[in-house]
Structures are given as C-alpha cells and as structure tokens.
Amino acid sequence: MSAIQVNEPKPRMIVPHSVRGGAISLVGLVIGAGIWEIVGRHTQAASFAPFSQTVSALWLMTRSGELPTALESSLELFGAGLGFAMLFGFFGGLFLARIRLLRIGLEPYILMLYATPMFALIPFILSLFGFEFRAKVIVVTLFGVWPILINTLEGARSVSNDLLEVAKSYRSTEPKLWRHVIIPYTLPYTMTGVRQAIARSLIGMLASEYLLAATGLGNLILTYTNRFDTARVLAAVLVITLLATILMAIGRAIENYFARWKAGV
C-alpha cells in the first residue's frame, strides 16, 4: 500500500541471511548449555548439576525404565484430563451460546472459576473424590476446561448474521446449519482455547501429582528432591519442558489447521 513497500522488493539473498540467523540461534543454545555446565560445576554437587550430569541422569533413568513409566503415567493423566476438558468445553460452550438465559446467568461464575487459581480447590476435590486417578483427572480437567469453554462460546456467538441468513435462504435445516456454518466457524476459536488449555492442564497435571497421590513425573521430581539428587530432578524437569514444547507445537499446528481459512494465518 504505502510506496515504500512497492519500491522495496524483498532481498533476493534469503538463504545466507537465514543461515546467519540460525547460526546466531545455535550460538545462543551453546551459550545456554555452557552457562548451565559452568554454573553446575562450580557449585556444591547437592544444589546444582551441570548439563552433562543431567543428560547422563536422563540416560540412566530412561534405561532403568523409571522415566518411561513415569512419563506414561503422567501422559495418561494429562490426556484423560484434557480430553474431558475438550469435551465439556466444546459442547458446554455451544450449549451456552444457544441458551441465552443460562449464559447470562452463569457468565460471571465461569469467569470467576477461570480466574481462580485451581490449585486452591484441590483439597476440596480430594475430600469429594479421593486421592486416586479419578480425582486427578478432575483436577486436570478443571484446569483446562475454562479457556476452551470461553473461547468456544465467544466463537459461536460471533458467527455473523449475514452468514446465517445465507444458510437460511438456502433452506438449511437446523442440524445442517450447525454442521456447515456454526461449528466450522467456531472451531478455530475452540482450538485457540485448546492451546491455552494444554499449558494449564500441564500445570494441573503436576499440581495433582504433587498434592494428591504422587505418581508420574511429579512424583519423580519430589522423590529425587528429597534425596538431594539434583541431576535426576533436572532430568525430569527437562523431560517436562520437552513435553510442554512438543505439546504446544502440536497445539499451535492444530490451531493453524483449523484457522487456515482465516486471512493472514
């Protein structure tokens, strides 16, 4: 639009540019690992572990089967919790979008639950549902469900009347209206909520493993902290970090997929 854009074509030599950028990023990674290593070597072994020790702890824990078991247990909890959160969040959001009375009535309470640090409710859930898997899934779901519900609700409410009119002029039936217009329009919003829910559910997963029956990665962290085995604690933290990064990447990819019809994505 503005003339400077017209006159300034993108630089032709893109390849060397990005290679340089990649090199700088790589330098950043090496510096980070280096700092970790140096700090780790120059403090007491009990309080910090250098990068190399952490990696070897990771290897040992993987070989002993301890880490894969913990990871599996945590993922099971995370998956079940997020699954229920998606189910309740999506259908709950659509339901509330459709029923005005309920929506207006419940809105402040939903926003309140969204803003509450869910960790505080864990003891209450404990007293109702116990220590075990069921209670923990409820905790993870409670962490994750709100952004999905709120985003879905917002999406379903923002379908433009023009589009609904078009559908009606083509004599669309109610189920088809939902299938062809409202749900496809809402899904990108839902997926934005799912991405936020992934981060929150991970917190819920760890919080429930800390406070309810200690299992999975949370249990590993607590156990090795009590044994002052920093290398193994950091190894578990590293696995969680990796897990979080991968899950967020997947979340973002899904979000982009569902939003592919939107301009500029």
């Binding site: 503005s2 003339a3 400077i4 017209v6 006159n7 300034e8």
Partner: peptide
C-alpha cells in the same frame, strides 16, 4: 507512474 520511485526519491 506507480512504482517509478517518486516516493523513494522523497525519502
């Protein structure tokens, strides 16, 4: 004509 660089000249 558009794209002749008159705005760039100004800059």
């Amino acid at each position: 004509p558009s794209g002749c660089g008159k705005t760039t000249l100004l800059r």
